[in-house]
Amino acid sequence: MQALTNRSKVVSKKEMTFVEKLYLPAIFGGLMITVSHFFRKKPTIKYPEQKREIAGVFRGQHVLKRDEIGAERCTACGLCAVACPAEAITMTAAERQPGEEGLYREEKYAAKYEINMLRCIFCGDCEEACPKEAIFLTDRIVQADYKRNIFVYGKDLLVEPKDNPIDLSKRQTPEVKEFKHHTEYQHNQTFDKKQKIKAGGH
């Protein structure tokens, strides 16, 4: 029979020689190996103080972006929920009333918008599906907690604060930004270029 790999070894059960039977040389060798690790540089990252460098396209906790006047971009079209393979997103739509133009960008908005962070697999499909450049994944890590219901993030946690826009520049690589500029793709079509740069490069 032919071996699958060339790494297989024949197990030999030969008698131990006298030196091997003494054990002591082997023990001494083992001690030397462990002590050599004693002085090695430790790869530990002391987490809360020290954070690991994460990839530019890291996919973490979502953000619902606002546009340049501070209105929520999301129009509750539900495309993200449809695209989501984990069925993590639910929302309730509502109609914008006259006078709320500064709050919601489109005539329809999400009155309720929830992502279940325990279901979410952080695939980023919602971000890709969104025609309004409203939802993005960020480099923030979803906090651990003791209770399950805390992980259903509502609009209070998802919509970016007005005075503190979430920085997406690190996560949005030039390639991603470039892609967002391609107006031949349908979901990039409704915007002019100026707005897209802002959405992508906050």
Partner: peptide, 13 residues
């Protein structure tokens, strides 16, 4: 601490 250092860790700190 020693266990940690021998295993390339830092141990309680």
């Amino acid at each position: 601490k020693i266990a940690a250092f021998l295993q390339d860790r830092i141990g309680p700190d």
